[in-house]
């Protein structure tokens, strides 16, 4: 085998596209050709570098959007997908909400992308079989869990007495920053509360928006921006916000 032939085979060899016979021939030729050995090394290095790049799976929000499309096209939801589709509908309503600027109060003021991340975060809580990373109704378990995981101490309060037992906490990433998410339960419903330090001063009263039976609440209290999402009735969302504010104020 002459060198130009050998050189032309380097890529196909690295890519596993040579027949067994050609491979053997190539390997023999390689032994006496330093140039081609170097080429082979370079091709392998490049290949490994690219394969080492982390894969980014399809975001939950995208899955939900596609589910919604498929459901609309198929006309009726499949039985076993019903639960999933319910959340797909929620995703759709959240997209509307975001379009209306509900999520405002950006962490860095960048807009759109961050909103998407936050919605995806709600969906993870809503759709996951295990919605929390730390499962406990004990605030003394949940609060320390966040230490070293987020760069602030989120307010953690169990509201069982008020009808909102704490299920636990989890992390999410919004605009490249890790944020704390607390998950509560109200009867059979889940409620996701995302909390991060406010940059603006002063408390605001809970602002509840309803889209397709889905309640979104935003407010600021005790130096924290609060965003709560659930499929609860607006009045219940309001009582959740009130109960949480009171618990923060009284330190209970």
């Amino acid at each position: 085998m002459d060198c130009p032939t050998c050189e032309a085979m380097v890529d196909a060899y690295v890519d596993g596209e040579l027949s067994a016979r050609d491979s053997a021939e190539f390997e023999t030729a390689l032994a006496i050709c330093a140039g081609c050995r170097k080429r082979l090394e370079a091709a392998r290095t490049m290949s490994n570098l690219l394969r080492d790049l982390p894969a980014e799976p399809a975001p939950d929000l995208l899955r939900a959007r596609i589910e919604r499309d498929l459901r609309a096209i198929a006309g009726r939801p499949r039985e076993r997908a019903r639960e999933q589709l319910r959340w797909a509908a929620i995703a759709a309503s959240l997209i509307v909400a975001v379009g209306l600027g509900w999520l405002g109060g950006n962490l860095t003021g960048q807009g759109g992308r961050q909103s998407d991340e936050m919605i995806a975060g709600y969906l993870r809580v809503a759709m996951a079989e295990t919605p929390v990373d730390v499962a406990s109704s004990d605030r003394h378990t949940v609060k320390p869990w966040f230490v070293g995981r987020v760069d602030y101490a989120p307010p953690v309060h169990d509201l069982t007495a008020q009808g909102f037992p704490l299920l636990g906490g989890r992390l999410d990433v919004v605009d490249g920053r890790k944020v704390a998410v607390l998950v509560y339960r109200r009867n059979q419903h889940r409620l996701a509360l995302t909390v991060w330090p406010a940059t603006a001063a002063g408390d605001t009263s809970p602002d509840v928006t309803v889209r397709d039976g889905f309640a979104l609440t935003r407010w600021r209290h005790a130096g924290f921006e609060m965003r709560a999402v659930s499929d609860l009735a607006p009045a219940e969302m309001k009582s959740f916000a009130t109960a949480l504010d009171r618990a923060i104020d009284t330190g209970s």
């Binding site: 894969a55 980014e56 799976p57 399809a58 975001p59 995208l62 759109g112 992308r113 998407d116």
Partner: peptide, 30 residues
């Protein structure tokens, strides 16, 4: 879908555009 999104991510080089592209592609595929 993961592959479609991954490919879209590199084609568009933008996470938001990649989601739009993947969604549109899946619909077209259907």
């Amino acid at each position: 879908l993961d592959s479609a999104y991954g490919f879209a991510r590199w084609l568009t080089r933008d996470p938001v555009a990649a989601q739009d592209l993947a969604q549109e592609s899946l619909l077209r595929a259907l």
